[in-house]
Computed example of a mutant assay.
Amino acid sequence: MRWIRCAAVATLALTITACTTSPTGRQQFTLMSDAQLNQMGREAYDQYQQDLPAAGQAQQRYAQCVASAIITALPEQERNQDWQIRVFESEQANAFALPGGYMGVNTGLFDVAVNQDQLAAVIGHEVGHVLARHANERVSTQTSTQLALSVLSSAAGMQGPGGEQLMGALGLGAQYGILLPFSRRHESEADVIGLRLMADAGFDPRASLELWDNMSAQGGARPPAWMSTHPSHGQRMQGLQAEMDNAVARYEQARQAGRQPNCPRP
């Protein structure tokens, strides 16, 4: 059909003009400029700081110490971003990263990441999201998926209750078949990048496995991995273990080079 050929040509054109490569060598699809995403990250970060109470200075210095050690070990181009990290008062064991290098850590995370090496696993993971431009890739994937469904709906004349029901099913298929797997791929990739970063900074990468042991011990109901934006704890630990020999070698090399961070826990 003609409309299918047109949609395929348009999709191919977008793909050709928007291909980039992640730090692990994976091909990516990105449509937005870094400047656009960085501005959005800055605005969201400002909103976070307005909405959430800041933690104490000792906790802030602790997170900053770990983040600075990781950032110092980055190549010059990545190191010179406007990296910022803030600690927020919240019982949720969570952290986040926004385009432009803006990161946040909740105080509840310190109950799970109980030493500097485990905290470095979390912060390295968040830095990995930024370096891999995952926000750009996510927005680009969602935009192109929505565009494709809109073109399909218009071209196929899917109006009325029957068409709406079919489009709803197609949208659900896109959610579980494209968008969520993309998110899980991002999380797994950020785990690998973060493992390398923490090792290069002189933090023991084996602490990442201890961190996920702690996470698992917290329990709580979780959806099946195929319905989740994150891999299961077991899947993440398997992925980390597969990279561990290389990470330990990088860690030992960093320690020999004098990278021995000392960030006292408050």
Rank of each mutant, 00 (worst) to 15 (best):
A135F: 13
Q92P: 09
A44R: 06
P99N: 12
Q84R: 09
E137L: 05
A35S: 11
A58R: 13
A135H: 03
Q118T: 01
M32S: 08
F96Q: 01
D117F: 12
Q116H: 12
A35D: 11
A58D: 14
Y102E: 04
A63F: 00
A35Q: 14
S68N: 15
M32D: 04
A135R: 07
S33V: 07
H125Q: 10
A132Y: 05
R61C: 11
N94D: 01
Q116D: 10
Q39D: 13
T24A: 09
R133G: 09
A67V: 10
Q64P: 08
G25V: 02
A95L: 03
D51Q: 13
V114R: 10
R138E: 03
V122T: 07
Q116P: 10
I85Y: 11
F88P: 00
A95E: 06
Q77V: 07
A120K: 01
Y102I: 06
Q64T: 14
G101R: 09
T30R: 14
T107Y: 00
Q59V: 11
L52C: 15
L109K: 05
Q59P: 04
G41T: 06
A69G: 06
A97I: 04
Q28G: 03
A44C: 13
Y62T: 00
S68G: 13
S68Y: 15
A132E: 00
D82N: 14
A121N: 08
V112K: 09
F29W: 07
Q49P: 14
V130F: 12
E43C: 11
D117M: 05
C65E: 11
T72G: 15
Y48F: 12
N106L: 02
L31I: 13
E126H: 13
G41W: 00
G56M: 07
S68W: 12
L37A: 02
S68L: 05
D117V: 03
L37Q: 10
G104C: 01
G124W: 09
G101H: 07
D82H: 12
A35N: 03
F88G: 02
D111T: 11
Q77H: 08
M40Y: 12
D111C: 06
V87K: 06
N38P: 02
I85N: 02
A132Q: 08
D34E: 14
F110W: 01
S90L: 03
Y62I: 01
A54F: 05
L31A: 00
A54G: 15
V122I: 11
N80T: 10
Q39N: 08
Q47T: 09
R79E: 09
F110T: 04
P53Y: 13
P23T: 10
N136V: 05
I85R: 00
R86I: 07
H129C: 03
V114E: 13
F110P: 01
I85C: 05
A63W: 02
R61I: 13
Q64A: 13
H134F: 02
Q116K: 08
G128N: 06
M40P: 04
I123K: 03
I70F: 11
S90E: 01
H125A: 02
N136A: 14
Q27F: 13
R138L: 02
N115P: 12
A35T: 14
N136M: 15
L31R: 08
A44I: 04
Q28C: 03
V66K: 04
A132P: 12
G100Y: 05
Q64E: 15
F29E: 01
G124I: 03
V127S: 07
V105G: 07
A35F: 15
I123F: 04
